[in-house]
């Protein structure tokens, strides 16, 4: 891990998010010059509203990445959640949450109990849960409970309710990660699970909580998405895995664990969204946008050099 540039721990964590703040500032200036509409309040609110789901998923992903893990299954959990929420059964929402927690439990169980590599473990749940989502809802459709539609359409003081909810959740998550004992133990576990264990951290519980939270946040993202779409879609979550990892890496949270925070990755989501929006305004084809997204992901991860090559 590179420690250059900061001598105190708190400053180092804050510094890690600095590049993405700089990037988004530059992007905002460029967009503001290129297209006056880009930075209008309405456009920004729309972007925020569109990104609520990814922001929620990314918060969960960040928590897992801090422990030096990776959760590839979040996209499938998003899909499964929209499938269950749109199924029309009573208690659809609690069921969706339970299903997501079960996925988190299976992930953590495989990693802790059987020692399976996090990438293989979440790869396997990603595949299996995708199958479950297709089982519950083979084709897009269905409808969500009325209150969810109300939630998606509600505004308070001109701000969409989902945006306000997301802001509250992000704030709480940021405080927990940066100021609480749990947050500190996440970083301790990510730096070296063995040392942390000897040093007095219950690393097993931390890793379990991390994967449960990741699935829970993915579920919240899925519920928000289902509310927006007012229906379910078994494949809608597919991009969320890559996108949440891209935002996390872009936001300065080290993929090798132990360093980072919530604010950076959330700004990473907004950066990617603003970029996509700007490219749309400039009439650049979505194909090029995919390529740009890939390039950005590679650039972001290239900033996270490891001590030796690895997964």
């Amino acid at each position: 891990m590179k420690l250059a540039g900061a001598t105190t721990a708190v400053r180092l964590r804050r510094l890690s998010a600095l590049p993405v703040f700089a990037l988004i500032a530059v992007l905002a200036i460029v967009l503001g010059v290129a297209s006056p509409h880009a930075l209008s309040a309405q456009n920004l609110i729309n972007i925020l509203n569109q990104q609520v789901s990814l922001i929620l998923v990314t918060v969960g992903q960040t928590i897992v990445v801090l422990t030096a893990g990776l959760d590839l299954s979040v996209g499938s959990v998003v899909s499964l959640t929209t499938a269950i929420a749109s199924h029309g059964t009573p208690f659809a929402v609690p069921l969706a949450i339970l299903a997501a927690l079960a996925v988190g439990l299976v992930n953590a169980g495989g990693i802790l109990r059987f020692g399976i590599h996090p990438i293989l473990m979440t790869l396997s749940t990603m595949t299996a849960v995708q199958g479950l989502a297709l089982l519950v809802r083979p084709i897009p459709g269905g409808t969500v409970p009325g209150w969810m539609k109300t939630y998606a359409g509600a505004e308070i003081l001109g701000l969409p309710l989902p945006v306000i909810c997301a802001a509250v959740v992000v704030f709480l998550a940021a405080v927990v990660v940066s100021r609480s004992r749990f947050g500190l133990h996440l970083m301790a576990t990510g730096a070296s699970a063995q040392s942390a264990l000897l040093g007095g951290v219950n690393t097993g519980r931390i890793i379990l909580l991390a994967y449960l939270l990741s699935s829970l946040f993915a579920c919240l993202g899925g519920l928000n998405l289902a509310a927006r779409l007012a229906s379910g879609d078994p494949l809608v979550g597919q991009p969320f895995g890559i996108d949440s990892i891209a935002a996390t890496a872009l936001g300065g949270t080290q993929l090798s664990g132990g360093l980072g925070g919530v604010a950076g990755p959330v700004v990473g989501v907004l950066f990617l969204a603003l970029l996509g929006n700007g490219l749309n305004l400039l009439n650049i084809s979505t194909y090029y946008q995919m390529i740009i997204k890939g390039v950005l992901l590679i650039l972001a991860v290239s900033a996270h050099r490891r001590n030796q090559p690895g997964l």
Binding site: L70, I119, I242, I245, A246, A249, L255, S256, S285, Y287, Y288, Q289, M290, I291, K293, G294, V295, L296, L297, I298, V301, S302, H304, R305, R306, N307, Q308, P309, G310, L311
Partner: peptide, 23 residues
């Protein structure tokens, strides 16, 4: 050589290449 995460690098390349194939 850059020692970046293999998972993320190859995922990123995959996204790029799918974009290229659409093009």
């Amino acid at each position: 050589f850059v020692r970046a995460s293999a998972v993320v690098v190859t995922l990123g390349v995959s996204v790029m290449l799918v974009g290229v194939s659409y093009l």
